[in-house]
Design a protein around this nucleic acid. Structure first.
Lengths: 205, 205
DNA sequence: GATTTCTTTGAGTCGAGATTCAAACAATTG
DNA sequence: CAATTGTTTGAATCTCGACTCAAAGAAATC
């Protein structure tokens, strides 16, 4: 039989399992999730998966947590990466980072897939709620800075507008990963952009 | 054994099965769907379910189709039910009919549940696309009528604005049925309304 | 290097649910 | 009313994947 024994530490193995599970979910969906697939993707045996996660739900929850953190991190980076003195380009960077790249975008696909558990699982609902709140916070900051600088003249409170932008992204994003044939990625992107221009009164977006 | 034999027609039985399956899906989700549940809900045996739908996917597709039609019909009715001469109240009626009533709203829960198959199943994608397009068409009409009457002064093309309204509804709706703790139904409703007022320039909404 | 403890494996067991199917029966036909 | 055809049933079987667990191996400890 193959290599058997006592490898490094637990955290490394857990991370490998989480990433493997993420892959498996992205490929076959939550319904089709099989321990075998996770084990294969992580290069271990089925027994190992159960050894670390006797409760598969915990693993899925971990996948969700990781996906949320990664996504938020990438958006934060997009924001931070844009010229600090230029609110418009910072908002623009945020807007560019929120939609799936393609119909098959793995990150967004995974997030929507996991979010669907939220209606039935408080843990997942909490993660989804947290993602939403933090995205809203990001946009709120971006909008407020722009308003304070005089670059934006907001059509409503920054907080309300931020809600709207996040909801728009989620709505369009959902249709994109769901293969809505009438809605192309760049079209959705342009529509959101237009909306942002309108509510900020900033043509330079 | 119970009653056995040759009852009425096929269509009646099929409708019963579709509605039973809808119930079952709403209760336990797509993942937890069992033939037994469908059979029980419809008051028939498991064998009968397979007799009419050897391919369970066909039944699920039928459920989706029905949900889409029902939902569209109810929105159309809402629209038609409002004073024909009053574009504002017609748009308002439309806006009032698009969000889930509660976190547990059965209709919306079912729709989101079914939509998630879209990424993996062309049939479901088509239904979702169709729903989106027809909702957009409804809003487009409502907006254009208002603009033609001079009641609305649109901030962009009716078609674009309609897209935005539907996407907003979908985004907020998704969070609501997913138990987003920070987003109450009436808050979402108010946010959409505010947005609609802004883009139509119609304070009376 | 012997002992202890933690990991890993994979073959075997178990169970839930799908699927099959022969028997039973009802409507229809002639 | 006999024969035919379309429906329905539910018990038996089949399938697939979760779960168990004894054996084997590797690090750590002494």
């Amino acid at each position: 039989m193959g290599k058997v024994g006592r490898p490094r530490n637990q955290t490394a193995r857990r991370e490998a399992l989480v990433s493997a599970a993420g892959l498996a979910i992205a490929q076959r969906g939550l319904e089709g999730l099989r321990i075998k697939d996770i084990a294969d993707a992580a290069g271990v045996s089925q027994g190992s998966v159960l050894y670390y996660y006797p409760e598969l739900d915990d693993l899925v929850l971990e996948v969700h947590r990781g996906a949320v953190e990664n996504f938020l991190f990438s958006r934060q980076q997009a924001y931070d990466g844009a010229a600090a003195g230029d609110p418009a380009s910072r908002l623009r960077a945020l807007l560019d980072s929120g939609l799936p790249d393609t119909m098959e975008d793995a990150v967004h696909g995974l997030l929507y897939e996991l979010h669907r558990r939220a209606g039935r699982s408080p843990g997942h609902a909490e993660l989804m709620t947290s993602l939403f709140a933090r995205e809203v916070a990001l946009y709120t900051t971006a909008l407020e800075v722009g308003a304070a600088t005089g670059v934006f003249s907001l059509a409503a409170s920054a907080h309300d507008l931020a809600h709207g932008l996040v909801a728009l992204e989620d709505g369009y994003g959902l249709h994109i990963v769901s293969h809505n044939a009438t809605l192309r990625v760049d079209r959705a992107h342009e529509l959101i952009l237009a909306h942002a221009r309108a509510v900020t009164g900033c043509a330079g977006l």
